[in-house]
């Protein structure tokens, strides 16, 4: 099911949580809402679910305006960060809940409900645990039950609110892979909220980066990583270094020295240079970024060197292979291989 969010604004007690947000979610895709806390990503998810109502704007499910529909009418599957399993029901009862509460006319017979619940239990690889209670399962198992319960009602859209947020790192990686498999097999349109960029980059077809109640950028993980359209996205996704520069004569200057990078179509004046620490070439040339090594730390297979550029005390980071001879030097000069220029704030 295609979901369109159109110019949605949401205020809580006059405090705006979302400003004029629009987003098209394609049918069958797995899209991540990524952002720091307070960016409005969970609010957007709850608005799509119908757990919150927009102050302004509309939400379409396919061609149908769902803005005024209740959460029950929207037929969504919602998975909560803290599972929200019904503690007094067995796993089987939890999964069949959504079918059992249907009105008599649309409720499947009880044998059918049981068969479907068992099928889902099999899908989430928990067969044999149907008689257990939620508190007898591990966190990872509980979240799988929660997913099975959400899938039982054959939702139009599957919405997950930081589904792996309460789990430890190893279980989280495992479940991530597993969720991708389930998605590929069932083909539900899926929206999930996360603050973990690695999770978003690895899992999603597209990601939607949010900050301070606004959407910063929407695109495939590769596009967002390689071509960030705002300083925020550049800084939030992946590692980044930044430096104030001056644009003059179609060249970039730092501290009165040309650094050998063309300005392209940037306007003359102050600007901000962004680059990835691992995307640099060490060069011995005058037109380069040169600096004094302040610290050098080895992080796994790379050495992360912090340089002080020019006299103004600007610090940037560059990554070297850990056995690179330049790691021993006190001065380094380099040029970013790929970079991006944003107007100075």
């Amino acid at each position: 099911m295609e979901v369109r969010v159109q110019n949605v604004r949401k205020e809580f007690d006059r405090f705006p949580a979302l400003h004029d947000v629009s987003l098209d979610i394609h049918s069958g895709e797995l899209i991540a809402l990524l952002g720091p806390s307070g960016s409005g990503k969970t609010t957007l998810l709850r608005l799509i679910a119908g757990l919150e109502m927009p102050t302004q704007g509309k939400i379409f499910f396919g061609d149908v305006d769902a803005s005024e529909k209740s959460v029950q009418e929207r037929n969504i599957g919602f998975v909560f960060q803290h599972y929200a399993l019904f503690r007094h029901m067995t796993i089987l009862e939890n999964i069949s809940f959504g079918l059992k509460v249907r009105p008599r006319s649309t409720r499947p017979p009880s044998g059918e409900i049981r068969r479907r619940a068992m099928e889902l239990l099999d899908l989430v690889q928990l067969s044999g645990l149907e008689k257990r209670y939620p508190n007898q399962l591990s966190g990872g198992q509980r979240q799988r039950v929660a997913l099975a319960r959400a899938l039982a009602i054959e939702p139009a859209v599957l919405l997950l609110d930081e589904p792996f947020g309460a789990l430890d790192a190893q279980v989280r990686r495992e479940l991530r892979k597993w969720l991708r498999e389930i998605h590929d097999r069932t083909g539900h349109t899926t929206v999930f909220v996360t603050h973990d960029q690695e999770e978003a980059l690895e899992l999603s077809d597209r990601l939607c980066v949010m900050s301070q109640g606004k959407i910063e950028q929407v695109g495939t993980p590769d596009t967002v990583y390689d071509y960030p359209t705002s300083p925020f996205v550049f800084g939030f996704i992946g590692e980044s270094s930044t430096l104030p520069v001056v644009v003059e004569n179609n060249e970039l200057w730092v501290g009165g020295r040309a650094i050998g990078l063309p300005a392209g179509d940037a306007k003359p004046g102050n600007a901000r240079l962004f680059f990835r620490p691992h995307d640099v070439d060490l060069i011995e040339a005058d037109a380069s970024l040169a600096g004094v090594v302040t610290t050098a730390r080895r992080v796994g297979g790379t050495r992360r060197v912090e340089l002080e550029i020019g006299g103004a005390g600007h610090l940037v980071e560059v990554d070297l292979p850990f056995d690179h001879p330049a790691g021993e030097k006190t001065r380094l000069s380099f040029r970013p291989r790929r970079w991006k220029l944003f107007p100075a704030e």
Binding site: A49, L51, S70, V71, Q72, N75, I76, G77, F78, F80, H82, A84, L85, F86, F97, G98, V101, R102, A146, R149, A150, A152, I153
Partner: peptide, 16 residues
């Protein structure tokens, strides 16, 4: 309100 929200999202009405 997590459990209630879960029940509502699964289609249960207020009384249920």
């Amino acid at each position: 309100t997590g459990d209630e929200e879960a029940a509502l999202s699964l289609g249960a009405n207020g009384w249920q």
